[in-house]
Amino acid sequence: MKPASFRYISATSLEHALSLKAEYGDDAKFLAGGQSLIPTMNFRLARPAILIDLNRIDGLGATRPCDGGGARVGALTRYRTLERDAGFAGMFPLIAEALPHIAHPQIRNRGTIGGNLSHADPASELPAVAVALGARFHVQSTKQQRWCDASNFFVGGLTTDLQSDEMLVEVELPAPKPRTGSCFMEIARRRGDFAIAGVAATMTLGERDECIHVRLVFCGVGETPADASSVAEILRGHAPTEQAIRDVAAAAQAMIDPSGSVHATADYQRHIAGVLTERALQTAYQRARHGH
């Protein structure tokens, strides 16, 4: 299990990295944390001709507040950096709750936010979380820079909206509104495994504890994060009842299209998605009420 040969170039700046990518296109891959890329190279399932190492670019791993609240997370930010950042965790409890489900500490020390999102594994937690939070991705090439909504970024299994000369350089996370509760839950065979099904839910309450905003996004049950927020709309305008939440779960189950795996049948995945929906919405609701 040794990787095939490749040419290694350590990019010295973002511009350098982008110009290399513009030059080599699909023959080149960015090397960020490498925690998904290198295993596939060791299995020789991936054989990039050129690796552009981003790890020595200053500033790509910075997290900073953005104007009008929220935060901007640099693509090279390691999971563990966010995990250790109490302020960040306080602002984005949904991310804080999802992070421990991502592999193991050794992987989280190395793996990066941008690498994870660009890899777009269907079972991965962060893409679903990013969609649920309404994140925007700052994408750059030598020619242009643009913003892409997370909900438009993931176009298929391991496929994103990124063009062959582009890089995801920063993730913008809007600050959650007051009285927002969130919950991330997943079922995996063992902690740290990819999810059989996972769900990221957020709910914002009005003055009378009525639901005024709700997001519900699954991971692991389709090629891309499955945004089921539309079926949760029925919760809007009322304090969510158990029955209403059950109805949302049933509608979400009908909406998703899991494929099954060696670990779970599609029916079990769908069943789990329903159970998790109930539990996560209920938890998000309670957290919103109690200001957690």
Binding site: I187, R189, I196, H263, A264, T265, D267, Y268, H271
Partner: peptide, 11 residues
């Protein structure tokens, strides 16, 4: 056994 299998056996 597994959770998925138990689900199938008991559903």
């Amino acid at each position: 056994l597994s959770p998925s299998r138990l689900f199938e056996l008991t559903r």
